[in-house]
Structures are given as C-alpha cells and as structure tokens.
C-alpha cells in the first residue's frame, strides 16, 4: 500500500536542511542505498532553494509545500511555491541558465534534478508560483540479497 506525506514550512533558508532530512527520513522506509538517499536529498535542496530565493526572493512569510508518495520501489515528490513563477521554463531549465548571476548561482539546479530523477516536470505561472514534479525509482538489486 502506498504511504504519503505532506509538508509545508516558512521560506527560510534554515529550513532547507530540515526539508532535506525530512524527505530523506520518509524515503528511508524504502531502505534506499546511501547514493540514492544523497541524490534525493540533493534534489530536494535544489528545489527548495529555488522556491525560497527565486520564488519568494527570500521573503520568509512565503510557504514552501512538499508532498511525497512512496509506492513499491518508487518515490514521487512534488515541491511547490506560490511565488513569482517562471516566464520561460525552457530557458530556465537550460544548463547554466540563471536569472541571478549576482548571487553566484550555478544555474545547474534543474539539470541536477533532471539527472538524479527518472522524471521531472515543471509547471509555472508568473505571479502564481511554480510546481516541480519528480519521480525516482530505486534499484531493486537489494531485494536479491534478502
């Protein structure tokens, strides 16, 4: 049977680490490898950081929303903000593209998410906010060694 959780929190940068660990702790129920756990935590960090600094321009009164579903050997994560939104999603997803070069952003957030997940979808509406859908299958090699 599937297991789901929803989490929301203030758009404060201190909460990035909290969000990583929370999603990681939830995923731990599928007993992933350390590599898979690190990948998921990295992906969550990137998406949450984007919501805080791009979505809300660091306005801490904003809220970041995460839902996660565990199903068989798969985790589905949705990370959402109600912030600025993205005008041109294709451009935003390009490697190295950043709208905030002054913050020394790498422009690699979306590229990292895409690489560490099996599926990624970005839906965004200027002034309404951004939603990132992520899906990752875990390796099943573990099952063999039971």
């Amino acid at each position: 049977m599937e297991n789901k959780m929803d989490l929301s929190f203030s758009a404060k940068s201190e909460n990035e680490s909290f969000a990583r660990v929370t999603v990681g702790a939830f995923l731990a129920q599928l007993d992933p490898t350390m590599e898979e756990l690190t990948e998921i935590k990295t992906v969550v960090s990137e998406a949450v950081t984007n919501a805080i600094i791009h979505g809300y321009d660091n306005d801490e009164s904003g809220m970041v929303y995460i839902s996660a579903v565990l199903r068989d050997n798969e985790i589905e994560i949705v990370i959402r903000d109600e912030g600025n939104g993205i005008l041109d999603i294709d451009e935003a997803r390009e490697p190295l593209f950043t709208s905030k070069p002054e913050l020394e952003r790498s422009g690699m957030g979306f590229t990292i998410m895409e690489n560490f997940c099996h599926e990624m979808k970005v839906v965004s509406e200027p002034l309404l906010g951004t939603t990132v859908y992520l899906k990752k299958q875990l390796t099943k090699s573990k099952a063999i060694c039971r």
Binding site: A28, D31, P32, T33, M34, E35, L37, T139, K142, I144
Partner: peptide
C-alpha cells in the same frame, strides 16, 4: 553476498 553488494557502491542507509 550482502556484504559484497553493500561494499560495492550500494551501501544501505540502515
């Protein structure tokens, strides 16, 4: 086998 698989890049979180 467990030990081998785990040491081979698939270290379990547990």
């Amino acid at each position: 086998i467990q030990r081998f698989l785990r040491d081979d890049g698939t270290v379990k979180v547990s």
